[in-house]
Design a protein around this nucleic acid. Structure first.
Lengths: 339, 339
DNA sequence: GATGCTGACTGAACCGGATAAGCTGAGCCA
DNA sequence: TGGCTCAGCTTATCCGGTTCAGTCAGCATC
């Protein structure tokens, strides 16, 4: 089956290639009658313009890029990325943009991918995930002048556009909720310390701890994996003054923590309350269902995609705060038994 | 920062565009000295050929497509796709192919995407997931003559290349394992019935039931979501002759089932043994860790990608069986207490 | 010294669109 | 009737690569 080109449409309509181009792109230069005739023929023979030819003359790829910097094995576990991607995708496909995905091992590889995409003109812009403190990707992208939206912040995104959610407010609300239930010994199992949002949450945790006089509030470090989350939980629950509530920086670690607690003979929420960041269907799957800090991640992705398309279109780089994560209380939180 | 083109390289080397093209692509037609000089200049000014221009003249996109037919909300939950994608990606990026992703709502939309990709020459081939019985996508792709590899089978893939794992053998092994432990009342919570691999597993389950004389072996239908998995489990465990072991068609339903069992006061594995299909880190996260049927999904994806690139290169469509899923016994299976 | 041959390279066409510039005929007005 | 405008087209050029048909110097051959 031969793919129809603009020349085929032109020939069947008895006009020139130029006329067809004007007609299909809604440009003036053809009469309404001719336009309709051309549109009908294009539909009939199933014509869609070659993305390569269009990209070549328009100097725009019609695609945006997303590089995921995770080892292959752990990428699948967190539902976050798939949810984000589906939201991004919904927005892009509505505007006939394609999404190009690449999995990379580290930031050097990621920067190399950006450089290659830029040179090949393969994408018109990129979405940057997992912002770190002093992130080398930021100056690299600024130097390339490749349109980009950083998912993360605020702060540390240089001249680039960025989108974030107010994690500090969400964390503060969560601690206040636990304190209102009667908890004083609250622990937090944090994700990788050099991620910008971990830093923000850590600062907020320190601030609320100070404000509410929670001397026993501790943060322990982990890396978002179930293994590490379980290990951190085991350490916390074995200590002399074990916490009565734990906030986990993601859902996977929270589920691992729940299992550890059950394994150690503690009941949840009787002996231990658990709050998960990143609400996902997983949180509703376990018993008891986890109280979680959630937000609409597909909407977040869609928002980022919209913002990126605006930057690609030449609008100034915005710094936008998205919806603040909201706490959904479920069965894993309750007043501490030994109050 | 202006992007260098082949003309820039040619000018600096004092040769024609053609000579640069020959030099960079390892074609004969330039002397070794000139080739080295051109390569040095290309590296120096950071030249990478425009993917659009190359695609236009080579009539190859340098990209392969993957359409995911899932609603946005549930896409994130199953780790399967991310693991598959990371494997596909590893193979593709090693050969400088890009991966284009699109999320679609149903098969009609998916076929429309294939048609558009084909017309736009946006991808050189596609990977097809979640094969159904009488899958309309197969004839559509055959008609378009768009190179494709179907992940699923055997059978029902028409003239297209396909890759599958021997689910029948894996299911049989699992049932035999449970029977060896002493189970007789074995239930299976199946995924969507019109998926080809569900059908294959169902047939295998019926065969082994017959062979081993397991009159009480039942299959109940579900849809891979945690909610439905939980509901099916509740129904099974409420019946007069409740099963002593349940095999779930994916990890998410198995975890939901585990929670339901615990919620109903049953101990796992004492009162109920659980086996999950699709081993993933999630299975090791819960307590007790789930006995699971696993395979190397990234490797599966890489295999599929390799196969697709072979088809794109013009080799005949192969039908290949990948590694058979293997059973990893963990804490969720044991002899039934009331034997 | 004319001929053939080969290696190294150039020039131009081509891929399939977008678009600026040019052309044509109808309609209008003076 | 000639000149003007303008809608409605056509033609030509460009985007940045690949590739094919030449060109030309240098060398061997008879």
């Amino acid at each position: 089956m031969k793919r129809p080109t603009i020349a085929d449409v032109a020939q069947r309509a008895g006009v020139s290639k130029g006329a067809v181009s004007y007609a299909l792109n809604g440009q003036p230069g053809v009469s309404e009658a001719t336009r309709q005739r051309i549109l009908a023929i294009a539909t009939e023979i199933g014509f869609s313009p070659s993305s390569a030819a269009r990209a070549l003359s328009a100097a725009a790829a019609g695609a945006i890029g997303l590089a995921l910097c995770r080892p292959a094995r752990t990428l699948g576990v967190e539902p976050f990325f798939m949810a984000l991607i589906s939201g991004v995708e919904a927005e892009l496909s509505a505007r006939s943009y394609a999404l190009t995905l690449q999995v990379v091992a580290d930031h050097d590889a990621e920067i190399a991918v950006y450089r290659r995409w830029w040179g090949e003109r393969r994408v018109d812009g990129v979405l940057v995930c997992d912002l770190r403190t002093d992130d080398r990707r930021i100056p690299a992208l600024e130097q390339l002048q490749l349109p980009a939206v950083v998912i993360g912040g605020p702060g540390g995104t240089g001249e680039l556009a960025s989108l974030w959610s107010d994690d500090a407010a969400a964390l503060t609300e969560t601690v206040e909720y636990l304190v209102a239930l009667g908890h004083r010994r609250i622990a937090r199992v944090a994700g990788l310390p050099d991620l910008r949002h971990t830093e923000i949450r850590t600062d907020a945790f320190a601030a609320v701890r100070q404000r509410l006089g929670l001397a026993d509030a501790v943060t322990v470090w982990s890396d978002y994996t179930g293994e590490e989350g379980a290990r951190a939980t085991r350490r916390l629950l074995s200590s002399a003054q074990r916490p009565t509530a734990v906030i986990y920086d993601n859902d996977v670690m929270a589920i691992a923590g729940l299992s550890v607690a059950q394994e150690m003979g503690l009941t949840v929420p009787g002996d231990l309350s658990i709050v998960a960041w990143d609400d996902s269907p997983l949180c509703r799957l376990v018993h008891p269902p986890l109280t979680a800090l959630g937000r609409d991640i597909p909407a977040y992705g869609a928002h980022a995609a919209r913002q990126l398309l605006a930057v690609v279109a030449g609008q100034p780089a915005g710094r936008v705060q998205d919806e603040t994560p909201h706490l959904t209380p479920r069965g894993s939180t309750a007043p501490p038994r030994d109050r």
